[in-house]
Computed example of a mutant assay.
Amino acid sequence: MYTSLKKKVPDLIEALQGFVRKHHRFLLRIHLDKIDFITEQINTIEKAIHDALVPHDEIVVTLDEIPGINVTMASVILAEIGLDMSVFPSSKHLSSWAGLSPGNHESAGKNYNARIRKGNAYLKKVLTQAALALSRGKNNRIKAFFWRIVKYKGSKKAIIATAHLLLRIIYRLLTDNSRYIEFREHYLEQKGALLKPL
């Protein structure tokens, strides 16, 4: 690797000894103006999202208590699924709509097809990001679930399975108006409810 880089040293020196002329400054100014404009639009949108979420601060805080989910993720989740869970007869319906319910085509103990549907791309993306984040975070019952799935089915399936679990928890919290309780990584040894009413 060092040898191949050594051959490129003259090219690198030449690239670093350039000159910024008037037309370069003109083009840079156009790019910077475009960046400033987009940044201003992003700030405006973020303020609008924040203002829209103010009446639902308590629900955002509730979702933020779930491992792997932060305030930004909670905002995306609420924007995608709403607050009224009565539109989904069960968590299975919500999971199917989100594209997080794998098929179960099994015969003679062999699973032939476990593909997931396309579903809601934004919701699926934020939940899989949450699943990946919590797998690297502090020990908790969901992280324990993730690594248990990794052991038998691999990381990709574990991410989807954990995202599915997160969505089921969210559905329960919003349906029952309850708060998340953490039983740490030894949750399977615990006997009791995972959620408590407000």
Rank of each mutant, 00 (worst) to 15 (best):
G82Q: 05
G82R: 01
L83C: 11
L83Q: 10
D84L: 12
D84F: 07
M85E: 01
M85R: 03
M85I: 13
F88H: 08
F88D: 00
P89I: 02
S90E: 07
S90I: 11
S91V: 08
S91R: 07
S91Y: 06
K92V: 10
H93Q: 00
L94A: 01
S95F: 00
S96N: 08
W97I: 09
W97T: 13
A98S: 03
G99S: 01
L100D: 02
L100Q: 01
L100H: 02
N104Y: 13
N104M: 14
N104C: 12
H105N: 09
H105K: 13
E106P: 03
A108W: 10
K110H: 05
K110Y: 13
N111D: 08
N111L: 15
Y112L: 12
Y112W: 13
Y112G: 00
N113Y: 15
N113D: 13
I116M: 09
R117H: 03
K118C: 10
K118P: 02
G119H: 01
N120G: 01
N120D: 10
A121H: 05
Y122N: 09
Y122T: 02
Y122H: 11
Y122M: 07
L123K: 03
L123V: 12
L123C: 11
L123Q: 07
K124C: 10
K124G: 02
K125Q: 02
V126S: 00
V126Y: 05
V126C: 07
V126G: 00
V126N: 02
L127F: 06
L127C: 13
Q129Y: 02
Q129R: 02
Q129I: 04
A130I: 02
A130K: 01
A130W: 04
A131L: 11
L132F: 04
S135L: 09
S135E: 06
R136V: 04
R136F: 09
R136W: 04
K138D: 01
N139K: 10
N139A: 14
N140C: 13
R141P: 05
I142L: 12
I142T: 03
I142V: 15
K143V: 14
A144K: 05
F145M: 01
F146W: 05
F146C: 00
F146E: 00
F146H: 06
R148F: 09
R148M: 12
R148P: 05
R148L: 12
R148N: 03
R148W: 06
I149V: 15
I149R: 03
V150S: 00
K151N: 04
K151V: 06
Y152S: 07
G154V: 07
G154H: 02
G154C: 08
S155I: 10
K156E: 11
K157M: 14
A158L: 07
